[in-house]
Computed example of a mutant assay.
Amino acid sequence: MRMLGAWWRERWLGWLDYPLREGAVWADRYRVEELLGMGSYGQAYRCTDLRSGAVVLMKRGKPSKRSLAREMLERESEILKGLHHPQIPQWLDYAAHGREMGLVMELVEGYSLEHAVMGSEKIYSQQEALLVIRQLLHPLRHMHEAGYVHRDVRIPNVLVSGDKLVIIDVGLACRIGDESAYEKEEWGGGFADSWGAVKQRMRVPEPTSDLYGLGHLFLFLMYAGYMPHEGQEERGWEEELKLDPAVQDFVQGLLENKWQSAEACEQELEQTLKSLEG
Score class of each variant (00 low, 15 high):
M202A: 14
Q260C: 11
K199C: 06
L92Q: 14
A246P: 05
S194M: 12
P207N: 02
G98V: 03
K184M: 11
W259N: 01
G119K: 13
S261E: 04
Y18R: 15
L254N: 02
R151I: 02
N157K: 03
E268V: 01
K81F: 10
M105K: 05
R75M: 06
P19Y: 07
E10M: 11
M202E: 10
F191C: 03
Y212N: 09
M72N: 07
H229F: 10
G253A: 05
W91H: 14
A197Y: 11
Y30W: 09
S120A: 05
H84S: 15
L103C: 07
L36G: 03
R70W: 13
E145F: 04
R60G: 02
I167F: 00
V247T: 09
A116W: 13
F218V: 06
A224N: 11
K81C: 10
A95Q: 06
M105N: 06
I167C: 10
A69W: 00
F250K: 01
E78V: 04
G14D: 14
Q200D: 07
A264N: 11
R134T: 07
L243S: 04
T48I: 12
S194P: 00
L83M: 05
Q252Y: 08
E183A: 14
S261D: 09
A116V: 09
H229S: 15
E183M: 10
Y182H: 12
E121Y: 09
L219S: 08
F218N: 02
G188R: 14
G102K: 01
E233N: 11
G253L: 06
Q43F: 08
D17N: 12
F220I: 01
E33L: 15
G188H: 14
P63I: 04
S261I: 01
M105P: 04
P228V: 00
V204L: 12
L172N: 09
R51K: 15
R203E: 08
Q126I: 02
R51F: 13
A197N: 13
H150E: 06
A197M: 12
E34A: 08
V166M: 07
M58C: 10
A24W: 12
Q260P: 01
E121I: 05
G253W: 05
L73A: 07
R21I: 09
K258R: 15
Q90P: 00
W195K: 14
Y30M: 08
R51N: 13
P139I: 01
G236V: 04
S67C: 02
L214P: 01
P228D: 11
R46P: 01
R154G: 02
A146L: 07
G225E: 11
A6I: 15
I168P: 00
W91L: 04
R2T: 13
D28A: 13
R99L: 12
G102S: 12
C47Y: 03
A24C: 08
E114G: 00
Q252V: 06
K274H: 13
L159M: 15
G177E: 03
E268H: 12
Q87V: 05
R11C: 04
R70C: 03
G188M: 12
L73M: 10
G231R: 06
S275G: 00
A6L: 15
R51I: 10
T272N: 06
